[in-house]
């Protein structure tokens, strides 16, 4: 299962370079096509950024109905099924970081109402940082991200309002620093349990390579293995409702870890995660 955030956007430069429609295309050695490809990629990212908030307001699930055509029976049925169990949705930007952003916001929002889990969670975060140093990550680089993370957590503990949390998550700088920290928590857990997780890797990569390529870089999408690692690392169970084109009219869910009592619920639609209420 491949899941994540920006799967639906085809790389357009590839189309323009290799599409059979471009029969009259002539390679010009003076032109830098790689730059053009990256430029176009940036352009798409900017377009996504200008139309989607990092984290949206809480919206009624009725909003989803018009995301799909009325003739699309499978999705319309599944939305009805969702509405029988949930009321609202909070959307996140499709930038490849959506799982971490949705997970992070939903958890911190929950902490605003029930602060009892904060000391335990802080302990986990601090321990992970110690473990990362032991794994060879430079302390001062880690400090940069973890300090921002713990600072936001402390504000949630003391005086943060829901509006302030919302603003924090929509401040790109801070918001992305939080994403880096979640990613580091995943990389730490994966590497410390490398023997187990190596069984789930495809190809010839070892767990360290996998982390360097699929976990630590920004905008790399989240897969089953990331979610398993994150929920185990931080001890925050999550339910994911999978809304895809499968038959049956009902939306199936999966709890990470299995048989847990989920603290937060996310909606998965192919390539993207949002928060459910």
């Amino acid at each position: 299962m491949v899941v994540g955030g920006r799967g639906t956007v085809a790389p357009p430069a590839l189309v323009s370079r290799f599409s059979p429609d471009m029969a009259d295309f002539h390679y010009d050695p003076e032109k830098n096509y790689d730059e053009q490809t990256l430029e176009q990629q940036r352009h798409i990212e900017q377009e996504v950024a200008s139309t989607q908030a990092l984290v949206s307001e809480r919206l009624s699930l009725n909003q989803l109905i018009k995301d799909y055509s009325m003739e699309d029976n499978i999705y319309q049925q599944k939305i009805q099924d969702l509405r029988s169990r949930y009321r609202d949705i909070r959307k996140t930007r499709g930038d490849g970081n959506c799982f971490y952003r949705a997970f992070g916001f939903a958890y911190l929002e929950r902490l605003l109402h029930d602060k009892s889990d904060i000391p335990r969670f802080k302990e986990v975060v601090n321990q992970s940082k110690t473990d990362l140093v032991a794994l060879g990550y430079p302390q001062f680089t880690l400090d940069d991200f973890f300090d921002t993370f713990l600072d936001v957590l402390s504000r949630v503990e003391s005086s943060c309002t829901p509006e302030e949390l919302f603003d924090t998550f929509n401040d790109q700088g801070v918001s992305d620093y939080l994403i880096v920290t979640w990613r580091l928590l995943v990389t730490c857990y994966l590497q410390r349990n490398g023997e187990f997780f190596a069984n789930f890797l495809e190809g010839h990569r070892d767990i360290k390579e996998f982390c360097c390529q699929e976990v630590e870089p920004m905008n790399k999408e989240c897969d089953h293995i990331h979610i398993t690692a994150l929920t185990s690392a931080v001890g925050i169970p999550v339910r994911v409702e999978y809304m895809d084109r499968g038959e049956g009219g009902l939306v199936n869910h999966h709890d990470f870890p299995e048989c847990s009592k989920p603290a937060i619920t996310l909606l998965y639609r192919p390539g993207h995660y949002d928060i459910l209420y």
Binding site: D34, T37, L38, T141, L142, V180, C212, E214, K220
Partner: peptide, 22 residues
């Protein structure tokens, strides 16, 4: 380059950019 920014089609095992690089 971050993974995904693949102008030259690097081999997948090559070292990539991430925020913890220096």
């Amino acid at each position: 380059h971050a993974p995904g920014d693949d102008p030259m089609g690097y081999e997948t095992s090559a070292e990539r950019w991430s925020p913890v690089q220096s």
